[in-house]
Design a binder for these strands. Structure first.
Lengths: 196, 196
DNA sequence: CAAAAAACATACCAATTGGTATGTTTTTTT
DNA sequence: AAAAAAACATACCAATTGGTATGTTTTTTG
């Protein structure tokens, strides 16, 4: 990695962290360059606008991280139902990247940006669609190998799992306690077992 | 209603609408007074700060509206399972107050404000707790009248229902289509029926 | 009706915002 | 090593932000 691309990378990573904790709107460029110790000139050399940086964060930070955490564990899953549960549990209780009080990065950005920024919305919906399709395929293969009933609708199940995950992260935020995660996981397990 | 309290009410209602569509941070006081045609003097006569107005919106607009839409339908429910489904369906597809592309007002505010504004977090968590307890009680009474199995855990179910609702509203936002609501509702029905 | 308080109006302000103009330094290419 | 391009640094700027100081008008009260 060249020095220049390291600078760029630093900006994206630090900016992501601030945005994850405070939101996109409330994170100013001045704050980003202060914490990264990169000057304004350098910042605007790498990114034409703040939104260009925001999109780069989605595509270069959030997307790969999500693919690692959400998608890879579900590909070629031998026991899809178990894998979905384990993944969710890992995301809620073990992933060091995600913090209880700050919710889901993709979920946060979706809620904040979607209504008024088309480009963000597009980048995020692509990312989410990928996750959705992974879960759907997971259920489909579970139907094939017999671990899930034939009359289960993969799309519906995917929506149900994903929404409940997004939602419970919001609860984690308000209550600022992992208790609700444990409750949620118990019920998720029951729900998933009922698919068999 | 006196003229003064009407002014106050107008500010709260219009401000709520803007905040619901754009978020709290991005809504400026200048924009609020422009759309309400209330002067800055009048605004700051009724509210000491922007945050005081924000809290008033939660307590005087969001809270009563939520109580009407989320809580009242579930109190003294004869068939709790059915009522929960009907309420959710009404919220997603029929409620004129809630718009597809803007998500759930309480959910939006929670996600935006909770990590950095304690007072907002407190006001919102009270509101959410009330909703949660209503659903829990609903399940409890369903257990009593035999429409729900004895081994069902009301708290877990409440979390599961509420999170999935919050989450699916986020999907409505990204995809900007009611399709996911229909899919979600079908799966919700299956889930609820499995509680019997 | 007069005084006092409540309600509203106008003009301003310091701080912060995203962004630019114009440099200097570092790296790469020839 | 010289020229050119890439990478970074500094100083600035107009617009917007939440908020205030100082009014005037309207309503209520004695």
């Amino acid at each position: 990695m060249t020095k220049a691309s390291a600078t760029r990378r630093t900006i994206l990573e630090k900016a992501f962290e601030i945005i994850y904790t405070k939101g996109y709107q409330t994170t100013s460029i001045d704050e980003i360059i202060a914490t990264t110790k990169v000057t304004k000139g350098a910042f605007y050399y790498h990114f034409k606008t703040k939104d260009e940086m925001g999109l780069a964060i989605i595509n270069e930070i959030v997307k790969p991280t999500m693919q690692e955490a959400f998608i890879k564990p579900l590909q070629d899953a031998k026991n899809p139902i178990k894998e979905i549960y384990d993944m969710t549990k890992a995301l809620l209780l073990e992933n060091p990247f995600l913090k209880l009080e700050y919710g889901c990065p993709a979920g946060n950005l979706t809620q904040e940006m979607t209504p008024w920024n088309i480009e963000f919305g597009k980048a995020l919906s692509e990312l989410i669609l990928e996750w959705q399709q992974t879960i759907e395929n997971c259920i489909k293969s579970a139907k094939k190998n017999g671990t899930v009933r034939k009359n289960v609708n993969p799309q519906q199940v995917a929506y149900f799992i994903m929404s409940s995950y997004w939602g419970i992260r919001n609860f984690g935020k308000v209550y600022n306690s992992a208790d609700c995660y444990h409750s949620y996981l118990k019920e998720l397990k029951i729900y998933l077992n009922n698919l068999a």
